[in-house]
Write a protein that binds this DNA or RNA. Structure first.
Lengths: 215, 215
DNA sequence: TCTATTATTATACAAATGTATAATTATCGA
DNA sequence: TCGATAATTATACATTTGTATAATAATAGA
């Protein structure tokens, strides 16, 4: 018995940061911002609380990192399925809408996370920057999809029109996402994606239910 | 100098409750849920902190009362302008949309409040009940407006269609409200109400920009 | 193998928070 | 005018919180 089990392991810095960020996200989602204390975060990440300060000089810094991480994750979840594959632009737009209104994006968990973080956006300039960036990124992607779908249908729109269509469609998606996540019991399965397709279709003037021409 | 100035005044219970609720709302709006501590609430309401427990047996009870109060207030703000007055049903629907997308409803303050409270909805059954009630109340009013406007235009819809239209229009309004309140700088003056009218109009199949027939 | 580095744990601390209880005092009715 | 009631203040207390510092030990490199 000359050798005793090591009391801890040194992990690569990025692993630990990632674990702490994931723990933070998990706690904000499940117990709200108030539940995300340094001690609970450390417990969830399976480290002692002192280690947090080794990687993040303050708790706010960790919260911000988690916010940024989650927002990027969410945009990727929605945008990824429509990138790369070779389908019509209309089908791309439809896929984008549907993806944002199904799990895992449209879930109580994501709503909680978003509401928890948003609460801090008001009083923190850096949080506001992240929020702003995420918003424009999402809306710009949507605008590009709409633009291409309209050109494809031989109904091109002016920049001003496109801007307004993107704002409106973004609102429909956000609103349905919110309703579904905040009160899941109020909707039937698949109802939200269906309503999303019909509404975005009505706004931009395309029939998104029609699968259309797959190239 | 036999008489000294009274050290405090006894107020009617409802006044004090109202003051405490208003103080809570104000703090949640401006400093987030974390800023709404019993001491700050008491200071804002100009009482000492012990008094809070005299009217609310726990802090959660006060928060809930504030949530309910604010939600009722918000629904009233949106619904009141369209009640009573004698205009066409289409104009009523249009007014409802516009009111929800202008100050004081569509403001950063209201978004902060809403996000702050929503954060507690996830883990508190009573908060969930209030949220649910408010949501259905708002959506039902909207559905009634849509129904009447469609009948008026000789385009009656089935209950299933109406339900979906109400969900979709509610989403547009909520989404635009959210976008505008969370990032006011991203929109031009009046842009949100205009987009709201155009989008809701496109979804239900009515031209809401047209003032229509005033009865 | 040994040493320096630093990741990690362990402990401490002051401030803030919700709640509880005791002490005052404004105010109403007799 | 005076005593009873309860609205209000004053004080206390145990917990929790974020942060800071000291102690330990895993691990890479010489």
């Amino acid at each position: 018995m000359s050798e005793s089990a090591p009391k801890f392991r040194r992990e690569p810095a990025e692993h630990r940061k990632e674990a702490l960020i994931q723990a933070t996200i998990s706690l904000v989602a499940e117990r709200g911002v108030a539940g995300a204390t340094v001690r609970e975060i450390a417990k969830q990440a399976e480290v002692t609380q002192g280690l947090i300060r080794h990687y993040f000089s303050t708790k706010e810094e960790l919260i911000m990192a988690a916010f940024e991480h989650h927002m990027r994750h969410m945009t990727n979840l929605t945008a990824a399925p429509v990138a790369g594959i070779h389908i019509s632009h209309k089908a791309r737009l439809a896929a984008f809408v549907v993806t944002g209104l199904k799990p895992p994006v449209a879930t109580p968990r994501f709503i909680s996370l978003w509401a928890g973080f948003l609460n801090k956006v008001r009083n923190d300039a850096q949080m506001r920057v992240i929020h702003e960036k995420t918003y424009y990124d999402f809306r710009d992607r949507l605008e590009a999809l709409i633009k291409n779908a309209l050109i494809e249908a031989n109904k091109p729109a002016t920049p001003t029109q496109l801007r307004r269509l993107a704002i409106a469609c973004n609102a429909v998606i956000d609103g349905l996402w919110l309703e579904g996540g905040a009160l899941p019991s109020a909707f039937k399965p698949n109802e939200l994606p269906e309503i999303g397709l019909a509404s975005v279709g009505a706004i931009v003037g395309l029939d998104l239910d029609d699968p259309g021409d797959l190239s």
